[in-house]
């Protein structure tokens, strides 16, 4: 029975197919919202699915002078990391499929795999746009990773556990956005940085470096990276919602809260101008990290007193 349950959790629900389709649905909502904010019509509901199918069916061109194995394997690892992280978060408000002490750290690591793989994929090819994109992607990762970690550790400290299920259980009765507003902001903006959404899309700024690190990718590899990003959008929204927005007790609350958060994220994306990479780094280390740290210290002091 246990094996069957594991297979279902991995391949169908909540990991695997479900999260893939849900991720694509959320990606569509994101694209549609931005389009409407920008006075465009936007894609039809099946567009992300159609894009993925088309890309998956296309021939993958492997450029010369790259490590072919890495070139093929990196997108797989990226998607696998994103999919695996879905097993540890309370998707649609259910208990996480797997849970152990410290799974928060593992999940954050799994979520970073995508960026790491993107950076490596860019560095693997000789294309100049890819190299610049890879440098920017990794630079950006090093700037937001620490503040985001601090932001997500805030709830962990007040819940006195590093287990996502315990934290989300605690958050159901505490709206942490009110007690830790800075953490919430840093987490949401960090999520946008992770997903390379505007204004943090310098690593894939099309007017400068074409498609950044993924310039050489076509066909299957590109599809897998895109799917990984969609899954990560879903997982990231789930994490932030579960931690900061009063938890996700049931599917209805889950969808209402994550979609509301997505509206905010889409609004920010359409309002802001792209930051240069050095501005992104400056923003994170000068404000993001310091603010998160300040809140962290306040919390520790408060906990210590109480």
């Amino acid at each position: 029975m246990n094996t069957l349950r594991a297979v279902i959790a991995l391949l169908f629900f909540p990991g695997g197919l479900f999260i893939l389709f849900a991720g694509m649905a959320y990606e569509w909502v994101d694209r549609k919202l931005i389009a409407r904010f920008q006075n465009r019509i936007g894609p039809r509901w099946f567009q992300p699915l159609a894009d993925s199918i088309k890309l998956l069916a296309k021939e993958e061109v492997i450029p010369t002078d790259v490590n072919a194995i890495l070139f093929v394997v990196l997108p797989v690892i990226a998607l696998a990391g994103a999919l695996a992280s879905a097993l540890y978060v309370p998707i649609i408000g259910l208990e996480p499929s797997y849970s152990f002490s410290g799974d928060l750290i593992v999940t954050l690591y799994l979520l970073s795999l995508l960026t790491l793989c993107t950076g490596l994929a860019g560095a693997n090819t000789l294309d100049r746009f890819s190299l610049v994109g890879a440098t920017r992607a990794l630079t950006q990762m090093f700037s937001y990773e620490a503040p985001v970690l601090l932001a997500l550790l805030g709830p962990a400290i007040v819940a006195e556990s590093w287990k996502i299920s315990v934290i989300s259980e605690y958050a159901k009765s505490h709206w942490l956005i009110i007690t830790q507003p800075i953490g919430f902001l840093v987490a949401v903006i960090g999520l946008m940085g992770k997903l390379e959404m505007p204004p943090f899309d310098a690593p894939e700024a099309e007017t400068e470096i074409v498609a950044g690190a993924l310039t050489e990718y076509s066909g299957r590899g590109l599809a897998l990276f895109h799917l990984g990003k969609s899954v990560e959008l879903m997982v990231g929204l789930t994490l932030v919602t579960a931690f900061y927005l009063g938890g996700v007790a049931n599917p209805l609350l889950f969808f209402a809260k994550t979609l509301m958060l997505l509206v905010v994220v889409a609004g920010v994306q359409s309002l802001l101008t792209r930051l240069r990479i050095e501005q992104t780094v400056g923003l994170w280390w000068r404000y993001g990290a310091l603010l998160a740290l300040a809140q962290f210290l306040v919390m520790i002091a408060y906990e210590g007193v109480a």
């Binding site: 920008q38 899309d201 802001l272 101008t273």
Partner: peptide, 11 residues
Amino acid sequence: HEAGFDTLFMY
């Protein structure tokens, strides 16, 4: 658009 401010571009 070159600055990455697509909303102003569309408007």
